[in-house]
Structure formats: structure tokens, C-alpha cells
């Protein structure tokens, strides 16, 4: 009877651990991005909708996937950051068609500046690492 109790305990512990692991897979996006909160907020508002693994926009997620961003190699990360800086500075992103449907997702001048400054700082830190 005691052995059965131990076995049940092990099974319960195993179930608990596996459920925790499963939950971590479904953590909200914000937790997966290793970046300051203000940057996360900007990305969540204007970029993440299309640039994530579960997006239906194949081109967008092929270009940049924020869900897998942290697992990219240093070179790929710098390349992606350069791309972000370029499209934001040139006002190419978010795309005009998208903004026609969701005008509230447009980056304000201040947000665009904050994002590009962070991108350059982050890239510079990666290059010097």
C-alpha cells in the first residue's frame, strides 16, 4: 500500500512537471522576447501580429519571426535588427495596406525612434560581444 502511494506520488509529480513544461510552450509572446518592456509593447502593437510563428502571413514570418528571434545565431540576429531599422526608418513597416485596416497600429514618430535606437544599440552590443 505504501509502495502504491509512492508510485502514485511519482506519477503525480511527473504529470505536474510535464504540465508545467507544456504550459511554458504556450507562454504569452511577451515572455518569450528578451527585450525591454517599452520595446515589447511597440513590437506587440505594430509588428508581432504578422511576424510570429503562428501568423498566417507566410512572407512576414519568413522575413522575421519574433517568437524564434532569441534562438537566432548572432549573425542572423544582427541581420534581422538591421532589417528592422531599415524598414522602420524608411516607413515601409507596418505596410500601408495593413494600416488602412488597422490605423491604430501605425508607429508614432516617437515609437519609431525608440525602436530604431534600441535596434542599433542591441546590434552594436552583439557586434562587440
Amino acid at each position: 500500500m505504501k509502495k502504491l502511494g509512492i508510485l502514485a506520488g511519482i506519477c503525480l509529480a511527473f504529470l505536474f512537471i510535464s504540465s508545467t513544461l507544456d504550459a511554458s510552450d504556450k507562454t504569452p509572446v511577451k515572455g518569450e522576447l528578451n527585450m525591454p518592456e517599452n520595446i515589447k509593447a511597440i513590437i506587440d502593437k505594430s509588428c508581432f501580429g504578422c511576424h510570429n510563428t503562428d501568423s498566417k502571413n507566410e512572407d512576414a514570418k519568413e522575413d522575421l519571426d519574433f517568437k524564434t528571434f532569441d534562438s537566432l545565431s548572432k549573425v542572423k540576429k544582427i541581420g534581422a535588427l538591421r532589417h528592422i531599422a531599415e524598414v522602420v526608418e524608411e516607413g515601409e513597416m507596418p505596410p500601408k495596406r495593413f494600416l488602412e485596416r488597422f490605423p491604430e497600429r501605425k508607429l508614432t514618430e516617437e515609437e519609431a525612434k525608440t525602436l530604431t535606437e534600441w535596434v542599433k544599440k542591441e546590434a552594436s552590443a552583439l557586434i562587440k560581444q
Binding site: 549573425v75 544582427i78 557586434i127
Partner: peptide, 14 residues
Amino acid sequence: DTFDKIGALEEICR
């Protein structure tokens, strides 16, 4: 600069 060079190299490949 290095940032632009790496960005360009990544873009070439892509």
C-alpha cells in the same frame, strides 16, 4: 559600418 555590412550580407543571402 559593420552593422550595415552584416545587414547587407544577410539580405544578399535572403
